[in-house]
Amino acid sequence: MTQAVPIEAVLTVAAALFCIGLFGALARRNLVSILIGVELMLNAVNINLIAFWRYYEAQFITGQTFALFIITVAAAEAAVGLAMVIAVYRSWTTVNAESVDSLKG
């Protein structure tokens, strides 16, 4: 892999994935869709970490450790986020991010 594909190609994939996730998080109305966008962005970050680990310091574990911690955080984020979505749905009967606006001044 390191001898066949330059690291820039992997990083480009990660950047594209991040931007697609960002678009999803910004443009979707559904709260679950927004969470899906955030998950895509976290995945992009992980690709970067693993790519740097593989190309520059494959004999150390730092990159993999960091990726594992990010996966942990992503799992926790998904659990809490989706619980909040369900709580919002229960009190508002909608998961539309634009309708949940009671804090509006």
Partner: peptide, 19 residues
Amino acid sequence: AQQFVARWWVGAVVAVTLF
């Protein structure tokens, strides 16, 4: 129902600009 926010193009512009 509509899945995208009214100003979805703002998101598209932000994403493309960032990329």
